[in-house]
Design a protein around this nucleic acid. Sequence first.
DNA 1: CCGCATTTGTTCGTATGTATC
DNA 2: GGATACATACGAACAAATGCG
Lengths: 229, 229
Amino acid sequence: MIQKINRMSLVEQVAAQIEELIQSEQWTVGAKIPPETELMEQFAVSRNTLREAIRALVHAGFLETKQGSGTIVRSKNTLDAALKKYVKKATMLETVDVRIALEKQAAELAAHHRTDQDLAQLEASIKACQQAAEQDDVDQFIASDINFHKAVVHAGNNQLLIQLYEPLTEVLYAFIQDIITLDKPFQYEEGLHTDLLDAIRTQDAEAAAHYIESYLKIVKENVMTMMEE
Amino acid sequence: MIQKINRMSLVEQVAAQIEELIQSEQWTVGAKIPPETELMEQFAVSRNTLREAIRALVHAGFLETKQGSGTIVRSKNTLDAALKKYVKKATMLETVDVRIALEKQAAELAAHHRTDQDLAQLEASIKACQQAAEQDDVDQFIASDINFHKAVVHAGNNQLLIQLYEPLTEVLYAFIQDIITLDKPFQYEEGLHTDLLDAIRTQDAEAAAHYIESYLKIVKENVMTMMEE
DNA sequence: CCGCATTTGTTCGTATGTATC
DNA sequence: GGATACATACGAACAAATGCG
């Protein structure tokens, strides 16, 4: 069997290997990676070649270098960094529409694929919301609320969808804060999330999607009224 | 006014400038960029520094280098490259579900926001499909079909959504080819797209979403049966 | 605070493989 | 095939920042 020639440049090969080391968590986030001299020996390449590989990963957001100190692992995936950049530039209205699209689909999938573990996670998130509401802890409530939505998406069991959804939540955090603090005196509606949970539990995909739609339609209206001001 | 010290490394500065040149379309996609020796002079940096910057942009998907030939501009934005990478790793089933999510929402938005220009574009795409079908040109038909779906998403007038959708189509191209060539002897259903066009023209968001849903449900079933084999 | 080793940042020189005319 | 232009790769050296004793 004749093998294909390795057409990848040395730099690409080294970069791919390092990326693999990060994603397999042999190099954990936050940890310092071996110095250049050491990596030169391990990969058996020159310093310049190694540096080009490292620089590529720095630019992509995987690594962070500090002169005199060393190089540390900064992040595990690039999509997150790239998406955040774009979401930042997009208008809030656009972001909300994309969120509606993804979360609705996720809710339908969750209704089909949810495990007992998923249901437990959803219940826990709802409880956290209730507790925060009782204590009038706005920040905690928002965090718990976002956690609930994330849990829904996770229950959908679609990795690609999860990766796309995650960066959106971060941007919405500050916005939701504005809505709650400005628009209303922060009142927690009891059945807000439990309806969706029931729909997912009973595997009623249609109801789950409908809940998300009506909920996010309200969010969208809030966004639009805020933009008019 | 005291200015902050420029703490960016030379490589980062060069990379940022090149990125700017690309996004401002002073360096257009497909065009060859000046050779390294020339850029060394223009940026007033050494070869290795320049190379590290270029390598970072190559890894990000902006540039593409070919030994002996030169370096050309490959893409205008990173999100596209990052997404493609992820989509490639995701299963086809996951990709289809995400596509359903995005396209459904886009169809609803299109029904609301479509302009006369959008409608004209949709009609043109449908005509291209019909022509390709009459001539039994499978490749051309697939291309036109994808163009139609892209036109729907564009009519939704949500930049973020468009950016997310675009990379998905590329991956699906090869797959749709398989379905058409293997599964069926390539027959074009007349009303396939016209129903959606009518829904968008009459601004019936619900019907538009419903059409996308039923259409992509068929696609999804095809994916699932193919995976079983 | 000083001196020193470590580590990344930057530059130059040189040789080699590859595409284009 | 030869000449030229260009990217690839290696090696050596010095600069600058950091951290430690």
